[in-house]
Amino acid sequence: MSQNLHPGLNLGASHGDAHQQSELSVFGFWVFLMSDLITFGVLFATYAASSTPIAMAGGPGPAALFDLTSTGMQTAFLLASSLTCGMASLALKYREGPRRIALWLAVTALLGAGFLALELRDFADMIAKGATPMRSGWLSSLYALVGLHGLHITAGLVWIVVLLLLIWRRGVTDLIKTRLLIFALYWHFLDLVWIGIFSVVFLRGLA
C-alpha cells in the first residue's frame, strides 16, 4: 500500500505532484539527518578520546558530576515526547481537522521543554561545582556534545511553534503535512542520538 510509504502521509494518488515533492523533501531530510549524524559522530569520537585522566586535567570527573536520576528523567521525558510525536503523526494520517494534531504537538513541545529545563539545571549544577567547559578538555567535549543535542532540541521547539502557527493560519495543507512528517523524523532522530549520549557519556562515565 502506498500509504505505508511514509507514515503520517495520506496525500493520496490524486495529488501526484504534491506527493512527488513530498517524497523529495522527506528523502532530502533523511540525507540531511545522516550528515548531522556525522556531526554528532565527530563529537562522540572527540568525547571518547577525551575521557582520559590527561584530558580531565585534574578537574572534576564523571563520578563527581553526573546525576543518574536526572539523566533518567531526561530520558523519560524524551521518550515520552517521541511517543506523543508519533501520536501527532497518526492524527495527521487518520483524522481530519487540525485540533488533535495541534494538541499532540503541544504536548511534545512541553515534554521537550521539560527535558531542556532538566538539562540546563544539570549544567548549572555542574558549573556551580566549578565544572565549566573552560576547566578541562574533557569538559569542553562534554558540553559540546550534550550542548549540541540540547541546541537541536531547542531548534525543535521553535520548529513546533512555527508548525502550530502555520496550522492555525492555514489549516492542514499538503505542504504542512510534509513538514510535520519531516519534523517527526527530526524528533525521533534526536531521541536516537540521546540513546548514544546517555550510554556513552553518562552510563559509561558512571560505570
Binding site: 549524524l37 556525522i38 559522530g41 565527530v42 562522540f44 569520537a45 572527540t46 571518547a48 578520546a49
Partner: peptide
C-alpha cells in the same frame, strides 16, 4: 559505515 570509519578511526 562511514560513521564507524570516522569515529572508530579517530578513537
Amino acid at each position: 559505515l562511514l560513521l564507524g570509519i570516522m569515529a572508530g578511526g579517530t578513537i
